[in-house]
Amino acid sequence: MSANRSSAVMAQRAEPVDSLDDFPTPPWATRALLRFLRGQGEPLHLQHAWEPACNRGYLARVLAEDFDQVHATDVHDYGWPGQDGVADFLIPWGQDAPDVDWVITNPPFRLGAEFIRHALRYARRGVAVLVRMSFVEGVDRHDTLFRDMPEAFVLPFVERVVMWKGVLLDPDVPIWKVDKKGAGKLEKPTSATCYAWLVWRRDGQGVLECDTRFSRIPSCRLELTRPGDYPPLPDHLRKPQGGLL
């Protein structure tokens, strides 16, 4: 990681936790993107990346496995020591902007289009965002983003990417769930939401590639999961002693 501690950046506003889209990114989902980019000939080990919604660092730490340098910022301080600064990505950064080849992030859904447009101002090579598949719909996003700046790749996952608000969960570790009647049982965490990486990329002359290609990310969660990827299960999701509330 490489920190940018300039006073101009550090002085930017921070938002309270309850106003944020706090959905930590499973590390395997980021590794799937990096494997795809390497397969496209990207020399990631020579490039620099910026994660502007770094949360607790789960995505940024995986980027650091491949990229030469990773800059990590967020509008909120989640207490992760690798965060370079508390800063709103959507400000005019000017000379304080990190010098990067890629911007890669899991952006707030409501600000996703703004994040992408802003990221394209700073990323020399490309931008990749993890979004719900429904993000590709919508007249406003079409008119303000996709019509004039279409993505180069749409990469949906064929298996579900489990993301829960405020916590990173291992889909193989059961959590304690309580139904409306107050009865509890252990269930593996799941998700009804489909996710995809959208990738914008520039050619050798710096021009955005506009021929959108669709390529599914095959099942790879088990293959791309590493020891230590997931934090311990929070107490409120553990089975109570004796199994009773």
Rank of each mutant, 00 (worst) to 15 (best):
residue 2 S to L: 13
residue 2 S to P: 15
residue 3 A to E: 15
residue 3 A to N: 15
residue 4 N to R: 15
residue 5 R to C: 08
residue 11 A to F: 11
residue 11 A to M: 14
residue 11 A to E: 15
residue 15 E to I: 05
residue 20 L to C: 04
residue 23 F to H: 14
residue 23 F to I: 04
residue 26 P to I: 09
residue 33 L to F: 05
residue 34 L to E: 04
residue 41 G to K: 06
residue 42 E to K: 02
residue 49 A to W: 00
residue 52 P to D: 01
residue 53 A to H: 09
residue 53 A to Y: 01
residue 54 C to W: 03
residue 55 N to Q: 03
residue 59 L to I: 09
residue 63 L to R: 02
residue 65 E to T: 09
residue 67 F to A: 10
residue 69 Q to K: 14
residue 69 Q to L: 14
residue 71 H to N: 05
residue 75 V to L: 11
residue 76 H to M: 05
residue 78 Y to I: 03
residue 82 G to H: 10
residue 86 V to E: 08
residue 88 D to E: 05
residue 96 D to L: 00
residue 97 A to E: 05
residue 100 V to S: 02
residue 102 W to K: 01
residue 103 V to P: 02
residue 109 F to G: 06
residue 109 F to W: 12
residue 109 F to M: 09
residue 112 G to K: 02
residue 115 F to I: 00
residue 115 F to C: 00
residue 121 R to K: 13
residue 123 A to R: 01
residue 126 G to I: 09
residue 127 V to G: 01
residue 128 A to V: 06
residue 128 A to D: 01
residue 131 V to P: 05
residue 136 V to D: 04
residue 137 E to W: 10
residue 138 G to R: 05
residue 138 G to T: 07
residue 138 G to I: 05
residue 139 V to R: 11
residue 142 H to F: 15
residue 143 D to S: 15
residue 144 T to N: 13
residue 145 L to Q: 00
residue 146 F to S: 00
residue 147 R to P: 00
residue 153 F to S: 01
residue 157 F to E: 05
residue 161 V to D: 02
residue 163 M to K: 09
residue 163 M to W: 06
residue 165 K to W: 09
residue 165 K to T: 09
residue 165 K to L: 06
residue 166 G to K: 08
residue 166 G to T: 10
residue 167 V to F: 11
residue 171 P to T: 09
residue 173 V to S: 10
residue 173 V to R: 14
residue 174 P to F: 01
residue 178 V to E: 13
residue 180 K to I: 07
residue 180 K to L: 11
residue 180 K to V: 10
residue 180 K to S: 14
residue 182 G to V: 05
residue 184 G to M: 08
residue 186 L to N: 07
residue 188 K to C: 04
residue 188 K to W: 01
residue 193 T to C: 07
residue 194 C to K: 14
residue 201 R to H: 07
residue 203 D to R: 11
residue 204 G to D: 15
residue 211 D to S: 10
residue 213 R to E: 07
residue 215 S to P: 02
residue 218 P to V: 03
residue 219 S to M: 06
residue 222 L to P: 02
residue 225 T to S: 15
residue 227 P to H: 10
residue 227 P to D: 15
residue 232 P to V: 13
residue 234 P to Q: 12
residue 235 D to W: 07
residue 236 H to C: 10
residue 237 L to F: 08
